[in-house]
Nucleic acid binder design. Structure first.
Length: 263
DNA sequence: ATGACTCTTCAAAAGAGA
C-alpha cells in the first residue's frame, strides 16, 4: 500500500504533470493540496479516467484539498478542521480508506511574521494538534499527510540562518510541530532517514531546484497503530524538474499489509 | 537586502505563495 502527498499548486494548471505522475507511480491513495480551484472546477473526469475516485474540498483562487483512491472505498469523515466555525479556508479533509484514517492537510503559510497571518497559522496549528490528539485517543491506524509549511529542524533547510524569521521556521512554528509529533506520532521520512538531507520543495526563483536550495515541508505523521507497517518512504524528486511542475515534489510512504507479530 | 518565478481572478494588475 502506497500513500502519497502532493502540493500541486493548481490542480488544473498542473493537470498534465499530475496525470503523468499518477500513471508512473500509481499510488493507492493520494492527498492533494493547493487545488486553487472552486468545488465545481475540480477535474473529476480526468482523475476518474486516470483510475482514481476522489473527494475534495475546493475554494476559489486559493487552498483546496483532495483525497484520491484507486479503489472506490472512500468513506469521508469530515471536510473541515474542528474548532473554528468562522474559518473559511479549505485546508483539511479526512476519510477512512481500507481501515486507515487519512487526514489531508494544508497548513497555513503564515508570512509575513509576526502579523495576523502568522497568528492564523499558529491558531490553526493549535486546532490541528487538538484534533490530532483526539485521533490518537481513538487508537486506530492514522496517516496525517500534507503540506505542513514547517521545516522541523535545521537539517530541513538549505540555509537555516536565512530562514530564522520566516513563518515556516520561526521558533514558535518549530515548537508547534515538535509538540505535535511528541503526542506520539512518527515522522515517517525522518524515522527511516534520521540524518539525510531531504527536501520536498524548491522555489521557482534563482534556479533553486538546480542548486538544490530546498526545504522539507511536506510530511507524513503515522499513529502508533500503523507506524510499525512503515516499509519505505521517499520523495519523487524528479517530478519537480518536469515542465510546468509544481514547486513541491510528491512525497510517499509504503506500508506493509500485515505487521509481523513477534510475541 | 532585494528580487528572482508562477499561479489565480468579473481579466489588468495584484495578491499569495514559501
Amino acid at each position: 500500500m502506497r500513500i502519497a502527498t502532493y502540493n500541486v499548486n493548481g490542480v488544473n494548471g498542473r493537470l498534465p504533470v499530475l496525470l503523468r505522475w499518477l500513471e508512473q507511480t500509481a499510488p493507492d491513495i493520494v492527498c492533494l493540496q493547493e487545488l486553487k480551484a472552486p468545488q465545481e472546477k475540480f477535474p473529476e473526469k480526468a482523475i476518474l479516467e486516470a483510475g482514481y475516485h476522489a473527494i475534495w474540498n475546493g475554494q476559489k483562487s486559493w487552498n483546496g484539498v483532495a483525497i484520491l483512491s484507486r479503489l472506490d472505498n472512500i468513506q469521508e469523515v469530515r471536510r473541515t478542521l474542528p474548532g473554528d466555525e468562522e474559518d473559511t479556508h479549505s485546508r483539511y479533509i479526512e476519510a477512512i480508506i481500507d481501515g486507515i484514517l487519512v487526514g489531508c492537510l494544508y497548513l497555513p503559510n503564515g508570512n509575513p511574521a509576526p502579523g495576523p497571518k502568522f497568528d492564523y497559522k499558529l491558531s490553526w496549528f493549535e486546532r490541528f494538534k487538538t484534533h490530532a490528539a483526539y485521533l490518537l485517543s481513538e487508537e486506530v491506524p492514522v496517516v496525517l499527510a500534507g503540506d505542513y509549511n514547517v521545516m522541523p529542524t535545521e537539517l530541513d533547510v538549505y540555509k537555516p540562518e536565512r530562514w530564522l524569521d520566516d513563518a515556516l521556521f520561526r521558533p514558535e512554528t518549530r515548537e508547534a510541530y515538535k509538540t505535535l509529533v511528541d503526542q506520539g506520532w512518527t515522522d515517517a521520512l525522518r524515522k527511516l532517514y534520521p540524518d539525510e538531507v531531504i527536501y520536498t520543495f524548491w522555489d521557482y526563483f534563482r534556479n533553486a531546484y538546480g542548486r538544490n536550495a530546498g526545504l522539507r515541508i511536506d510530511h507524513f505523521l503515522l499513529s502508533p497503530q500503523i507506524a510499525p507497517r512503515l516499509k519505505a518512504a521517499g520523495v519523487d524528486r524528479d517530478v519537480r524538474g518536469w515542465e510546468k511542475s509544481s514547486d513541491h515534489a510528491p512525497v510517499w510512504v509504503e506500508l506493509s499489509a500485515l505487521v509481523w507479530n513477534s510475541s
